[in-house]
Design a protein around this nucleic acid. Structure first.
Length: 256
DNA sequence: ATGTCACTCAACGAGTGA
């Protein structure tokens, strides 16, 4: 099974790029983030024409996530809310396929730090940790993918000094990621490329892409059951070089 | 050279978020 995670930074602005990419790569499941629409501009019809059902958790102009499942694959919608119902920010979709919980997240950015937004990020991640530790304790097979807005380690950014004090790189935030790893979840990308300087995001500003001044903040974490079935995990940098690109690129996960 | 982009609201630019 081929899965992808991609922060598209507006599905309306990125529609053609995303449709073209889906058509050529044909993932079975796609996690999209930062749709920036409540559904009015979500291309349900075009995506269905490519052979996908969309589970959209959207909101107007901000955040928003969608999980696309190829038609013919049986799935169950588990939830579109992490915190409580109804949720004020659309950042979560959970489905189950073949006994595996599949969680699509767009974690809060949290900048500036400190601020109310940073506190919200901490509260949001506390809820996520609670959910995932329950799954680990119960040995529920799961994977979680998306824009974590966490730079896990120094090697996950071009210039660690430039990110000091940023809400993506405080010790407090990196500790959240480390706790998830220490509890037994596996960072799928690092299984195959343990020291590579590969990024998933390059800022639009200051020629960040041309200078390869990027960060790795889009991840797939796997429970032990899913780790045993891991075949591959790669970052596709190609879409970042297109005209009018997203500032993030897709991460591709393959599991048996 | 903080060198960008996409959104909303009520306009034809300012403010916000990333």
């Amino acid at each position: 099974m081929k899965m992808i995670s991609w922060n598209v930074n507006s599905i309306k602005a990125r529609k053609e790029i995303v449709l073209d990419w889906l058509e050529s790569h044909k993932p079975d499941v796609a996690f999209l983030q930062e749709l920036k629409t409540d559904g009015e501009h979500y291309p349900f019809d075009e995506i269905e024409a490519l052979g996908y059902v969309s589970e959209v958790n959207g909101q107007k102009g901000y955040a928003g996530v969608a999980t696309l499942v190829k038609k013919g694959i049986e799935y169950t919608l588990i939830s579109k809310a992490l915190l409580e119902e109804p949720e004020e920010q659309a950042r979560f979709v959970e489905v189950e396929i073949d006994g595996i919980r599949m969680i699509n997240i767009y974690a809060p950015n949290g900048n500036p730090q400190p601020s109310e937004k940073y506190d919200y990020k901490l509260r949001w991640y506390q809820k996520l940790e609670d959910k995932l530790s329950t799954y680990m304790r119960n040995e529920t097979p799961f994977l979680i993918g998306g824009d974590f807005n966490i730079i896990p380690e120094n090697k996950d950014c071009y210039d660690p000094n430039a990110w000091q004090g940023d809400a993506l790189f405080t010790k407090e935030i990196r500790d959240i990621y480390r706790r998830m790893i220490n509890s037994g979840m596996v960072d799928a990308f690092r299984v195959f490329d343990s020291n590579a300087l590969n990024y998933t995001f390059w800022d639009y500003q200051a020629g960040a892409w041309q200078r390869n001044n990027g960060i790795r903040i889009d991840h797939f974490l796997l429970s032990p059951y899913v780790t045993d079935r891991l075949k591959g995990c790669v970052i596709d940098k190609e879409p970042r070089a297109l005209d009018k690109p997203s500032d993030h690129v897709p991460v591709i996960l393959e599991i048996n």
